[in-house]
Nucleic acid binder design. Sequence first.
DNA 1: CCTTTTCTGTGTTGATCGATACATAAATGA
DNA 2: TCATTTATGTATCGATCAACACAGAAAAGG
Lengths: 204, 204
Amino acid sequence: MSERGRPRTFDRTAALRRAMDVFWVKGYEGASISDLATAMGINSPSLYAAYGSKEALFLEATDFYSRVEGPDIWLALEEAPTAREAIELFLTRTAKAYSQADRPQGCLITLGALHQDSTSGLICADLRRRRAENHSALQKRLERGVAEGELPIDFDSRAAATFFATVQHGMSIQARDGASCTALMATVAGAMAAWHTLAGVEKA
Amino acid sequence: MSERGRPRTFDRTAALRRAMDVFWVKGYEGASISDLATAMGINSPSLYAAYGSKEALFLEATDFYSRVEGPDIWLALEEAPTAREAIELFLTRTAKAYSQADRPQGCLITLGALHQDSTSGLICADLRRRRAENHSALQKRLERGVAEGELPIDFDSRAAATFFATVQHGMSIQARDGASCTALMATVAGAMAAWHTLAGVEKA
DNA sequence: CCTTTTCTGTGTTGATCGATACATAAATGA
DNA sequence: TCATTTATGTATCGATCAACACAGAAAAGG
């Protein structure tokens, strides 16, 4: 490849992970270039040379987040044999991940940039897209449950996916308020308590 | 009272409402003094003279929000005859309020300041306190349901309150993503679907 | 060797941040 | 009338924001 020129003296991926942590804790607006560069152990010109801009760095950091922090939670949908167990495992892993003491609480995709201003419009749109993808993944798993006969033919997979996705979003805020894993599991239990009704004769 | 000196030329409460709208849309960090003063129709020195600081203005704006936007939703807990109807009415009014086209989507208390940095630590703490009060209001209403015999004696009011509060928080983010009232009602339906199980033999 | 290419650190850019100094204007009390 | 008090508008404060100019340093190709 291109190995011309002076080689980079820092690990690009390791620095990206540190940037992700800063964005995770402070959000897009709250994280300054100074904060980021300090945490990454580099100076701002190196940051711009390697990643382009604050916006580009955030997009790369969220993508990294999705690939590193996401799978543990979202693979639950494919690992569990039934839709019910898939949702329950998905929410349980969410509760654990969101309350881990050695990481920022809650989800970067959910909390990273909720207020779209002039500078972060692209950021907000990207996060919204990722949240929509998550909603779609839930819906597809539920539709599979319908196709496999686990759920009734008139089961509203879209509405149910909206419900479970919304519960997960709420858990991010609950985690930011300092909720323990046990407290988050109370929410999981509440959400799963809806299963019988949703999967049963809800149309009555 | 004190009517000495030159009288104020703007309506203090009307300006506070405009400031509330700006904070509601942009959040605490995202709202600049310039944004606020422009929306309020005053210059920054008048802003500081009347409200003290950006922090103090935000605290006053959130208090105003609680007194003006809150009651419609939270009085549902006292207006409905049963705990079940109270929660359902509470969530239904939330769905309507969060999706109104002529207002910012979602809740100022929930979305106003999620990332505590050095400058907004007091802000975050105040919003957390308000969210805790909301949780407490839900829990009290559920406990009343237990006391009145509507709910079983071993009903976990605290866990259920956590669940419903978390659902409402999630609805704020859902609304920020552009969800319609109908879409929000899907979440309400999901949450209420949990009722039978939570109020029944959940300990099994 | 020398040229080219790329990265690093220092220092700085114009813009914007939250917050005020200051002089003037408009009210009250004496 | 005049001193006191408070509000207003202009203009600006130091600090920080995101981003970059520039020169020196470290590699490869020739």
